[in-house]
Amino acid sequence: MTEDQFWKLIETSRAAALEGLGESFSEDDLFDAHLASLETELSKLSHAALGEFITLFQQKKIEAYRWDLWGAAYWLFGGCGDDSFSDFRSNLISLGRSVFEIAINDPDQLAPTMKRKDLPYMLSEGFQDVAFDVAEELGVSELDLEFPPYPSDPAGEEFDFDDDDEMARLYPQLVAAFPDSGELG
Results as ranks from 00 to 15, higher is better:
46 S>K: 12
183 E>K: 03
95 L>A: 00
137 E>G: 10
138 L>H: 11
87 D>L: 01
59 Q>L: 14
118 D>I: 15
185 G>L: 12
159 F>T: 13
163 D>A: 08
115 K>P: 00
90 S>R: 02
47 H>I: 01
147 F>D: 05
102 I>L: 14
60 K>Y: 13
60 K>S: 07
3 E>N: 01
30 L>P: 00
76 L>Y: 02
123 L>D: 04
92 L>K: 01
19 E>P: 08
79 G>N: 06
89 R>V: 11
46 S>T: 15
150 Y>W: 07
22 G>H: 01
165 D>Q: 15
7 W>D: 08
175 V>G: 03
71 G>E: 06
45 L>N: 07
6 F>H: 08
120 P>Q: 04
138 L>P: 01
29 D>Y: 07
119 L>M: 07
103 A>D: 04
68 D>L: 02
128 Q>E: 15
77 F>P: 03
11 E>T: 08
11 E>W: 05
56 L>M: 13
83 D>A: 12
174 L>Y: 03
42 L>Y: 10
92 L>W: 10
170 L>P: 00
88 F>V: 08
171 Y>S: 06
137 E>T: 13
45 L>D: 11
52 E>I: 02
79 G>C: 09
99 V>I: 15
151 P>N: 12
9 L>N: 03
47 H>W: 04
120 P>Y: 03
136 E>D: 14
172 P>Q: 02
156 G>P: 10
69 L>E: 07
98 S>G: 00
26 S>R: 13
101 E>V: 03
175 V>N: 03
66 R>V: 05
157 E>S: 11
91 N>I: 12
163 D>N: 14
110 L>V: 09
26 S>M: 05
180 D>L: 13
2 T>R: 01
149 P>T: 15
31 F>Q: 10
54 I>H: 00
14 R>A: 08
26 S>I: 04
72 A>H: 09
10 I>C: 06
2 T>V: 02
149 P>W: 00
117 K>H: 12
137 E>W: 12
184 L>R: 07
18 L>H: 05
74 Y>F: 14
51 G>A: 04
150 Y>Q: 12
104 I>P: 10
9 L>T: 06
10 I>Y: 13
155 A>C: 06
34 H>G: 00
101 E>P: 03
69 L>Y: 05
136 E>F: 09
139 G>I: 06
43 S>Y: 05
29 D>H: 14
61 K>I: 11
58 Q>D: 11
135 A>P: 13
102 I>M: 14
175 V>D: 06
130 V>W: 02
125 E>S: 12
129 D>T: 07
185 G>T: 13
41 E>G: 10
165 D>S: 15
96 G>F: 12
177 A>E: 09
66 R>C: 08
117 K>W: 01
34 H>D: 00
170 L>I: 04
8 K>N: 11
14 R>T: 01
46 S>D: 13
